[in-house]
């Protein structure tokens, strides 16, 4: 099969229906490695916030102050859950939330995601694999910092 057709098999969706520019890092401190940091929107925070794409993270995770806005409008799937992190076990709860990936080109995508929220979380926002990424098709073009996405 010619390589230009690889991602467009007949009868299937296009591999990607949208893309968004991402940033490698956002923090002031020197970073040793580039990350993929994309904007996402949450229903109760209708302005984009930045989140790190992390295939090693099971769930999506948001900073406590964003979590506060989210929990006001939804019930947890499970009240008490633990998350094993590099800094130890964190207690929290899993919620079901719609995350929107905005599109610079093409169509934005709304994804029902599994989100871990905890007042103990001290890191940045994350988009995890089990919680979101495995429900979509995605690809990265690091040459131009584009994150491609589409429905399965």
């Amino acid at each position: 099969m010619p390589s230009d057709l690889l991602l467009f098999k007949p009868g299937r969706f296009s591999f990607a229906t949208g893309n968004v520019r991402y940033v490698d890092a956002t923090e002031a401190s020197p970073v040793t490695e580039a990350r993929i940091v994309v904007p996402v929107e949450l229903k109760s925070v209708a302005k984009p916030v930045l989140a790190v794409v992390d295939t090693a993270a099971p769930w999506c995770i948001f900073e406590p102050v964003i979590a506060e806005s989210l929990v006001r409008n939804s019930l947890p799937i499970l009240g008490q859950t633990v998350l094993s992190t590099r800094i130890g076990m964190i207690q929290g709860a899993i919620y079901r939330e719609v995350l929107r990936i905005p599109a610079d080109e093409g169509e934005p995508l709304d994804v029902e995601a599994s989100v871990f929220l905890s007042p103990e979380w001290r890191g940045p926002n994350f988009i995890g694999y089990q919680g979101l990424l495995q429900r979509i098709r995605f690809a990265v073009d690091p040459e131009v910092n584009l994150f491609y996405f589409g429905r399965i």
Binding site: G18, V20, P39, R96, P102, D104, P108, D110, E112, R151
Partner: peptide, 18 residues
């Protein structure tokens, strides 16, 4: 099951974030 929906109604809504 978790739903994923394309939003063609929002095509072109977002500006360049650069």
């Amino acid at each position: 099951p978790f739903e994923v929906r394309s939003r063609p109604d929002l095509k072109g809504f977002y500006l360049d974030p650069r």
